[in-house]
Computed example of a mutant assay.
Amino acid sequence: MEVSIVHSFFLIFAGAAVIATVALYTRQPLIIAYIALGALLGPSALSLIDEPKLMDEMSHIGIIFLLFLLGLDMQPSHLINMLKKASWVALLSSIVFAGVGYSISLAFGYSQIEASIIGIAMMFSSTIVCIKLLPTTVLHHKHTGELVVGLLLLQDIIAIAVLLVLYSIAGTQESSASQILIPIIGLPSLIAFAFLFVKYVLLKLIAKFDRFHEFIFLVSIGWCLSMAVAAEYLGLSAEMGAFIGGVALATSPISQYIATHLKPLRDFFLVLFFFTIGASFNLELLGLVIVPAIILAVTSMLLKPVVFRYLLKGLKEDASTSWEVGFRLGQVSEFSLLIAYLAASIGLIGIEASHVIQATAILSFALSTYVVILNYPNPIAISDKLRRD
């Protein structure tokens, strides 16, 4: 039976409301509840929603808004300084994580190529989980938040490079050359365009019609999605385009007004994102992948804080800040899910190896969320003492 989009939204959001109530009563993280709901209602269980691909496309908008709002909180001068400082930390840590993931995968009998892809998937931390658990009005303006965001951005750049290589493998030699060249030219061009357009067009329009709140709301959404689409045309990720659009606006006082009014829209789509992760997972393969996935997820959660602790020591960071950054970055990334889907679709890895990456990501999301909400300031903390919006 074909399910309408209204029926699908009813199941997702009514179900999310019920399971969120249960989660709050039992003091569990809401993110985990949304993933569990997706697994329950998705094709592998009750099959009440059998089009997770459609949900995935809609949930992607939530990630775009999340990065746009993050950009609104980042002053360009602070961001550039942090990226310069943390670049070698991001590179060295990625190499270590890839090597460990590769070794563990080989030990479980996966092929050299599959172990390499699993190792690569271990390199990155989740932008969504990390930013979701950062207090938007406190930590973004503090040094810890800047470190986390800087490292995430550098990891995203590495992840985009990996995806470009995979796309080039899937395509012809001619197209792969253009796919590599266009983003190299496109990134600085997009940054220059964003700052010039904001300065000479967008801010003047907002200043002229700032009495009309609906106009500011519409212009903000239009600017965010325009930058996301422009980035995709230039071979970059939509998330990166949205982030650049946010940073370009961050120097204006209007940025905080926009950030406040877009948060409900962001949260709407993020529920879809976490639901889709659960719905997309094939539960029939759980028995085959659960052991390596648990080991990889636990290794990620234990290894990343240690590695970041010692690498950040080279930047003269104190121990408490370094440990907090490491634990906040302890999970695997949504980019890892994309790498798994793409590598499987072009035949580099099998379905089992792809689901190992997916299961590792889901488990690491859960582990990381529990660690952060129980120990560090965050918007969804169980303890009133740690809850910071």
Results as ranks from 00 to 15, higher is better:
residue 263 K to Y: 08
residue 264 P to T: 09
residue 265 L to S: 09
residue 265 L to G: 06
residue 266 R to L: 02
residue 267 D to F: 11
residue 268 F to Y: 10
residue 269 F to R: 05
residue 269 F to A: 03
residue 270 L to C: 09
residue 272 L to E: 04
residue 273 F to C: 06
residue 274 F to K: 03
residue 275 F to I: 15
residue 276 T to D: 13
residue 277 I to D: 06
residue 279 A to G: 01
residue 279 A to C: 02
residue 282 N to Q: 13
residue 282 N to S: 11
residue 282 N to R: 06
residue 282 N to A: 06
residue 283 L to S: 01
residue 283 L to F: 07
residue 283 L to I: 14
residue 284 E to H: 14
residue 284 E to A: 15
residue 284 E to K: 14
residue 284 E to Y: 12
residue 284 E to M: 13
residue 285 L to G: 07
residue 286 L to F: 12
residue 289 V to T: 08
residue 290 I to S: 05
residue 290 I to Q: 07
residue 292 P to S: 05
residue 292 P to Y: 05
residue 292 P to I: 05
residue 292 P to M: 01
residue 297 A to M: 07
residue 298 V to S: 10
residue 298 V to Y: 09
residue 300 S to A: 13
residue 302 L to R: 11
residue 303 L to E: 10
residue 303 L to Y: 03
residue 304 K to G: 01
residue 304 K to M: 01
residue 306 V to M: 14
residue 306 V to A: 15
residue 307 V to P: 11
residue 308 F to A: 08
residue 308 F to Y: 14
residue 308 F to P: 11
residue 309 R to Q: 13
residue 310 Y to V: 10
residue 310 Y to N: 04
residue 312 L to C: 01
residue 313 K to D: 15
residue 313 K to H: 14
residue 314 G to W: 14
residue 314 G to E: 03
residue 316 K to T: 12
residue 318 D to E: 15
residue 319 A to H: 12
residue 319 A to C: 11
residue 321 T to C: 09
residue 322 S to D: 04
residue 323 W to P: 09
residue 325 V to T: 13
residue 326 G to S: 06
residue 327 F to M: 13
residue 328 R to V: 12
residue 329 L to C: 03
residue 329 L to W: 00
residue 331 Q to F: 08
residue 334 E to S: 03
residue 336 S to I: 04
residue 336 S to R: 09
residue 336 S to E: 10
residue 337 L to C: 06
